[in-house]
Design a protein around this nucleic acid. Structure first.
Lengths: 207, 207
DNA sequence: GTTCCGCACGAACGATCGTGCTATTTTCGC
DNA sequence: GCGAAAATAGCACGATCGTTCGTGCGGAAC
């Protein structure tokens, strides 16, 4: 049997479990003991893979971000540029929040946990978020060149608005368990798109 | 000297410190030991005031929520109904995020920490958020009767949008330390108000 | 003047935390 | 297969966690 070496495989198993667990208890709530018993190995055996808890947290963050990119961003990029791509992104995003195993999202939890706790974990998280922001802004820019959006639409402002709406959705859906959370998020995104469309162009006319 | 009994006074001192500390490390990150040394008393002496860590956490949430209501919501209610009141609310809110001692907001942190951790603390947090939602929706409704907003504006949807924008601001300002965070939040709120205004009425014409 | 109560203290508890060691087992190139 | 190297287990450590208990101090009530 080839493929990755044994160590790399178990490392991935560990990280998978760790992400799942971190979705429930957050990044700071992770404990080596819990994860090790969850994957059925000793604390020290697991620990040797990372060398420190901080390194494990960074690895967890990377794993979760990769998963997010694979299931939300990349698939959306195969949709046509402009509005359809934004819609695909939002739908993937909402689906990610809806179907995800209980616990929500590590990254959202980590964002509030770490916002005032300097260190390599926060630095990494910031990088990931800046990359996400840039991705969204680029999608918007594509919509501008495509003529779906007004030329003066600011990609960074749109990224801010869109991410804010997803945060609102997360809050409403996860904490408040509001049944209309998804509908409200969709309406909010539609309003964003409405505001970005060239004047006189009603919804759907340019697709 | 009358006033509250000794016990109640020290209890308040404890809670004040606990809120400050929880703003940095979150509600789950609070430890009895840290708080007790911060206020200069013994662990057991502090503990006796609450009986359990959970009770302390609930008390911290209540204290923070009261503080928020006193500095953000109540002052806004003295502004004229409708748009000015919304603007006052947002300005107070932004100022709260800007000038607050380092650490951000316990409530925001607790919202993501507790969203999948059932128990009395989460229940209380949910109540507080529902009360906030209701407050915002009521302010919007006032703006509708005042004619500042279109009659079909949905107060709950607006509350969703507004809270989402404040979450986005918090994220952008606290984690990303984006200098334009406040400007973007303001622009986003203006867009919300634009969309809610009766057609043909430009900004400021109805104040 | 004695009793009682609110309040805080110090010590200790079992548990669990992250983190080092040292063996022991497993894997993999030759 | 064999031996080097990687992977895992076992054990122990100091620290800290929330919690409990007994105790002492000070003022109020009687």
């Amino acid at each position: 049997m080839d493929g990755p070496a044994k160590g790399a495989r178990t490392r991935e198993v560990i990280l998978q479990r760790a992400v799942t667990h971190a979705c429930r208890v957050g990044l700071a709530g992770l404990t080596i003991g819990d994860i090790s018993t969850a994957v059925g190995m000793s604390k020290s055996g697991l620990y040797a893979h990372f060398g420190s808890k901080e390194a494990l947290q960074v690895a967890v963050l990377d794993t979760a971000a990769q998963e997010f990119a694979d299931t939300v961003i990349v698939p959306a990029l195969s949709a046509p540029r402009g509005e359809p791509r934004i819609r695909a992104l939002v739908e993937n995003w909402l689906a990610c929040g809806r179907t995800r195993q209980p616990g929500g999202c590590v990254i959202v939890k980590a964002s509030t946990e770490l916002d005032e706790q300097p260190g390599p974990v926060r630095d990494r998280l910031r990088e990931l978020h800046q990359a996400l922001d840039a991705s969204i802004a680029r999608i918007i820019a594509g919509g501008v060149t495509e003529g779906h959006f007004r030329p003066d639409v600011d990609g960074n402002q749109f990224a801010f608005d869109l991410y804010a709406m997803m945060l609102g959705f997360y809050h409403s859906y996860r904490l408040l368990e509001e049944p209309q959370a998804e509908a409200r998020a969709r309406r909010a995104v539609e309003a964003l798109l409405d505001a970005a469309r060239p004047e006189g162009v009603a919804r759907g006319e340019n697709s």
